[in-house]
C-alpha cells in the first residue's frame, strides 16, 4: 500500500509540539516501514522554505530551548527517501517561487495533483 500524505494545515501547534504533528507522524510511520509520500499544499508549503526561525519563545522564566524546525524536518523526510511534492500555485499565492526551498522538494501544478493521487493507493488528507 502506497499512501500520499496531504498536509495543508500549518503552524497550528508547532511550538507546543516542537514540530508539525503530521510531518512527525510521517517520519514515524516511515520508520515503521510505511511506503508514503507527502504533498505540501495550502499554508503548509511554507514548511519547505529555508530560513524559518522559531527560536526565542519565553514565558517569564520558561524558555523554549528546542524550537520546531520545519525545514529540517521536511529535509529529513527527503533524506529518508520520501518524495515531497509542493503545489506551485500555493507557493506563488504566498509570494514564493521555486527558489529558497528545501533541496529535493518537487513543485507540481494543481493540475498535476490528480496524477499524483492516481499514483497512490490511498490519499490521506490531514
Amino acid at each position: 500500500m502506497k499512501v500520499l500524505q496531504v498536509i495543508e494545515s500549518a503552524y497550528r501547534a508547532t511550538q507546543e509540539e516542537q514540530d508539525d504533528t503530521i510531518v512527525w507522524i510521517s517520519h514515524a510511520m516511515k520508520g515503521a516501514g510505511a511506503d508514503l509520500n507527502v504533498l505540501l499544499r495550502g499554508n503548509a508549503v511554507n514548511y519547505a522554505v529555508d530560513g524559518q526561525d522559531a527560536s526565542g519563545l519565553a514565558f517569564s522564566a520558561w524558555k523554549q530551548t528546542q524550537p520546531p524546525n520545519m525545514a529540517r524536518d521536511v529535509a529529513g523526510l527527503v533524506d529518508k527517501g520520501v518524495e515531497i511534492y509542493i503545489t506551485e500555485e500555493d507557493l506563488a499565492e504566498r509570494g514564493l517561487g521555486g527558489a529558497g526551498l528545501v533541496a529535493g522538494v518537487k513543485p507540481v501544478p494543481r493540475a498535476g495533483v490528480p496524477a499524483l493521487f492516481a499514483a497512490h493507493d490511498q490519499v490521506w488528507h490531514w
Partner: peptide, 20 residues
Amino acid sequence: TPGDLWSMAGESDNTLIMGT
C-alpha cells in the same frame, strides 16, 4: 504508536483520515 495506524490501515479495506 503511529506504527499501529499504518498496520491497521494495511489490514483494512479502506481508511478515512479526519484531520483537525
